[in-house]
Amino acid sequence: MKPKITVWSVVSFLLKVILMVIFIFPFYWMIITGFKTYQESIAFPPSFWPAQLQWENFVKVWESGPYLLYMFNSFAVSIGCLVLQFLIMVPASYAFAKMEFKGRGFFFGLVMVAFMVPQQVTFISIFHMMSRANLLKTLWPQILPHAANAFGIFLLRQNFMQIPDELLESARLDNANEFQILTSVMLPMGKPTLVSILMLSFITTWNNYFWPFIMASSQNVYPLTLGIDALRDVEGSFDWQIIMAGNVILVVPIIIVYAIFHKRIVRAFAYSGIK
């Protein structure tokens, strides 16, 4: 049977195309600009494909500062956050979902508050704490404040709550202790959600500009985002092709992560009832 072409299906298709163009075009523009010469990047009318691919833009970015270090910092911060978040989020979600204890509602309320208060409200006092702890010359101020992922705790708790209590009771009858219940029963069932939370968290941390901008007090602890930002000042004027080449370097890891996990990310949102 042929699918029927109705007015609505045409409109719906056109809308999707328009949405895609709106989201993809800036991305496309960033990439092709990163491959242009300076002349071409400011030429009018603009070209939609570089006359010649200028790979040396990327070399220039790489040589204009300690980009290997920036990249290392970005990875160290992102992965450090992931590890700490995992270690805190999993037992916290388990406790909030499945254990009876005094003040459970109150503490979960605190988590929700932490989820709703923006960083812009807390960064001054956190900066102060980090400075008093003498940590400003290290990566810790970029990692520690993000160790507890309130949104992640919320999502994973929702997921754990859907697991029937009988499974845990059955495991208790099978002589499993709480740690085994968590690792053998709960975690495998929460895995899709957990993976998505950690991927989202990786992307957020990797892309974060505001937080390191406040907390990174020397070039030694700059992540890539600050490094790319510094490209603006190199020549005094805006070398768009260099800045865009830097941005391309910045987003490549994100694209890889997303390409691998996008199905999981979408599914986690569907599970949690947000989508």
């Binding site: 499974l167 009771e169 059955s170 208790r172 009858l173 053998s184 029963v185």
Partner: peptide, 21 residues
């Protein structure tokens, strides 16, 4: 006594089979 020390086994109404194993 904790459940595991009682030497009893239970078949639950919904079977409670571990779905990931």
């Amino acid at each position: 006594l904790p459940p595991a020390k009682r030497n009893v086994a239970m078949v639950f109404q919904n079977y409670a089979i571990y779905p990931t194993m």
